[in-house]
Computed example of a mutant assay.
Amino acid sequence: MEFGIFTVGDVTADPTTGRTPSEHERIEAMVAIARKAEEVGLDVFATGEHHNPPFVPSSPTTMLGYIAARTERLVLSTSTTLITTNDPVKIAEDFAMLQHLAGGRVDLMMGRGNTGPVYPWFGKDIREGIPLAVENYALLHRLWRQDVVDWTGKFRTPLQGFTSTPRPLDGVPPFVWHGSIRSPEIAEQAAYYGDGFFANNIFWPKGHFQKLIELYRRRYAHYGHGTPEQAIVGLGGQVFMRARSQDAVREFRPYFDNAPVYGHGPSLEEFTEQTPLTVGSPQEVIEKTLSFRETFGHYQRQLFLMDHAGLPLKTVLEQLDLLGEEVVPVLRKEFASGRPADVPDGPPAHPAVERTRT
């Protein structure tokens, strides 16, 4: 089982002080958070991709390449790579290059994003979102597996005798997740290729994501990749912890109430009851996270959102200490118990990474 964190890279004012960090400060904070994640024993750091304020991670491979040079073990991922508005040729080249620089410690998550205007910014039509995702990934998949590609599609100019460079490290492409919060077509796509499916269930009730994951598992087996239980599933989550639950609630409430992503909506209590958000003690985080297995079955990756809503860097680093020291060791042990021997305990690792682990 892999545990890690993901960031959306928002630049948000701290509601308790009124101070807004600069873009430079936020970018440096994200790097510090990634390095802290490795220090406390987490497995994964993932960044989103956004092209509009108040977000800063417009170039994930640039950031991950920088972090790769400053870490040794951490898996570097995206929590969204916009398969709809990025050229699949550029994705193939950028992430293969990152693979080489990071010694194989790379995977990525395909997504369509949550910002409608991004489509025309890059010359695309939002009404073609699903067809773009399907066609662009079909090309990306081939570019990483065929040395010479001829391609004709609807959404880009044809390719004739094209070779993407550099080739994937040791001929093995990065592992791919397909992320979705609402589209069964994306769960189907992940199943078809035998890739991972990531349900970033941070906003909607669990029943919604339960249906998507069950669909993915059934179709994964249908396409002959293994049993439904062997399908590779990842989940999102959000936590804020203090030693005493009441202190966590009191401290986090102003951040929740003013957050751009969910402020001014349901109360903190309503949100924590209906979604994976946990605000409380480390033990409460452990108990709620363990309950995900009851709903979704055995899964392979758990990522937490911890650095959003204007939380200062000092507080986020304190949260990571709690996560690494008090929460994840217990979760590792508990999730390992009862996992059938034929069910993967994590997504496939690149052979170069496996060699360093043996």
Rank of each mutant, 00 (worst) to 15 (best):
W151S: 05
W151T: 04
W151R: 07
T152Y: 08
G153Y: 07
F155T: 03
R156K: 00
R156T: 04
P158Y: 01
L159T: 02
L159A: 03
Q160Y: 13
Q160F: 12
G161I: 09
F162Y: 15
F162D: 01
T163N: 04
S164G: 02
S164H: 09
T165V: 13
R167V: 07
P168F: 02
P168G: 03
P168D: 04
L169W: 01
D170E: 14
G171D: 04
V172H: 12
P174A: 09
F175R: 00
V176R: 06
V176A: 01
R182C: 08
S183E: 14
S183W: 10
S183I: 09
S183H: 09
P184W: 00
P184M: 03
E185T: 03
E185Q: 12
I186P: 02
I186T: 12
A187M: 06
E188R: 11
Q189A: 08
Q189H: 04
A191Q: 08
Y193Q: 12
G194F: 08
G194E: 06
G196H: 00
F197V: 03
A199H: 06
N200R: 13
N200T: 13
I202W: 07
I202V: 14
I202F: 08
F203W: 08
F203G: 05
F203D: 08
P205N: 08
H208V: 14
Q210C: 12
K211I: 13
E214V: 09
L215Y: 06
L215A: 05
Y216T: 12
R218H: 15
R218M: 15
R219M: 10
R219E: 12
R219N: 10
Y220I: 03
Y220D: 03
A221Q: 01
H222L: 13
Y223F: 15
G224C: 11
G224I: 11
G226R: 08
P228Y: 01
P228Q: 02
E229F: 10
Q230N: 03
I232Y: 14
I232S: 12
G234M: 06
L235V: 12
G236C: 05
G236A: 01
G236R: 05
G237L: 03
Q238L: 01
F240S: 12
F240G: 13
